[in-house]
């Protein structure tokens, strides 16, 4: 209401509120322009590309605003023999990686929760996998898991295996390796969230339980775990979303071989393998739609959980 009064043709003296608003737009301008140009526009343009037959080579000649849409790209995506297997692979990969990440993060957090000498250093080292460049650690893992590498040699020397396994490109080992890599790389993320939540649990809950004679394991299951429910659910949501969209790790660790060809690899196959921009865009759109559908279901359950916690 105030704003309407002030804008009533008093042009000579701008009110304080107007000045504040102008300053706000000025401060927000550069980031908003960048984000609009390099995220929102590409997402919108992806929608356009998905409905047009665009190849990389013809891209420069393609008009930006052509209107005759086609379903060809989606037909290509869905009729591709790899599509349904890739969708299944993506779900297996995403679900197992997410669960492993959270389980390891929870274990690491419980280990470091109580004070002990060197705790700060241990905590820093736990975070290393998460901060290192993915390319560098992916290649280290590839060499470690190589049939002639340290792990296979050690397994043969100790008599556990007779023959080296190709755990990077043989099904189902490739998926195990990939999930292990994800668990290793992202457990620190869960660890950070869970440690912060653990510290917020009031001590008197534990003391009361101790007086009542609860054992440490009982205290974990009846106090700690219920208190962590919400943060675990949030972690699941975030990790699920990001793993579903993960491309780098799959591309670098197993290269999509041995039954690890996920949907994001299909985007890359269309775009770089076949220079088929339209099909790549359609694939990305399908990926996004599947994820959105899964998240909608999850959110229903999550809201209920949140309401319970309040």
């Amino acid at each position: 209401m105030k704003r309407q009064e002030s804008s009533s043709r008093l042009r000579t003296s701008i009110t304080l509120a107007q000045r504040e608003e102008r300053l706000a737009y000025l401060l927000l301008g550069p980031p908003v322009l960048l984000i609009a140009g390099l995220i929102l526009f590409p997402v919108a343009w992806n929608g356009w590309l998905a409905f047009h037959s665009v190849k990389l080579l013809s891209l420069r000649q393609t008009s930006w605003w052509e209107l005759d849409a086609t379903w060809d790209n989606f037909i290509q995506v869905f009729s591709h023999p790899d599509f349904w297997p890739a969708l299944r692979t993506t779900l297996v990969y995403t679900l197992s990686s997410t669960l492993l990440t959270i389980a390891l993060g929870l274990m690491a957090a419980l280990l470091v929760h109580d004070r002990f000498p060197g705790r700060g250093v241990v905590r820093s080292f736990f975070l290393l996998p998460y901060v290192a460049p993915v390319v560098a650690i992916a290649f280290a893992w590839r060499f470690i898991l190589d049939p002639r590498g340290i792990l296979m040699t050690a397994l043969i020397n100790t008599g556990i295996l007779d023959q080296p396994l190709n755990v990077l490109s043989q099904s189902p080992w490739a998926m195990f390796s990939l999930v292990a890599f994800e668990g290793w790389r992202f457990f620190p993320f869960g660890f950070l969230f869970i440690v912060a939540r653990l510290q917020a649990i009031p001590d008197n809950l534990y003391e009361a339980a101790k007086i009542d004679g609860a054992t440490p394991f009982q205290r974990f299951f009846y106090i700690t775990l219920p208190q962590l429910k919400l943060v675990l659910a949030t972690l699941f949501l975030l990790r699920f979303m990001w793993t579903f969209n993960e491309f780098d790790d799959v591309f670098l660790v197993t290269k999509g071989t041995g039954g690890t060809r996920v949907l994001t690899m299909k985007v890359y196959d269309f775009l770089i393998g076949e220079f088929n921009v339209g099909a790549g865009a359609a694939m990305a759109l399908v990926l996004f739609a599947v994820l959105a559908a899964l998240l909608t279901v999850y959110f229903r359950w999550y809201r209920r959980l949140e309401a319970e916690a309040d």
């Binding site: 995220i39 590409p42 590309l49 985007v267 921009v277 865009a281 990305a284 990926l287």
Partner: peptide, 29 residues
Amino acid sequence: RFRGRSFMSRVILLIYMFPAIVIATPMYA
């Protein structure tokens, strides 16, 4: 205080959630 403030504070996290692989194709193009 400005028009669109509450919208901005809500939408900013959503944008952060946009996966790189979905932007990769149009950005490449």
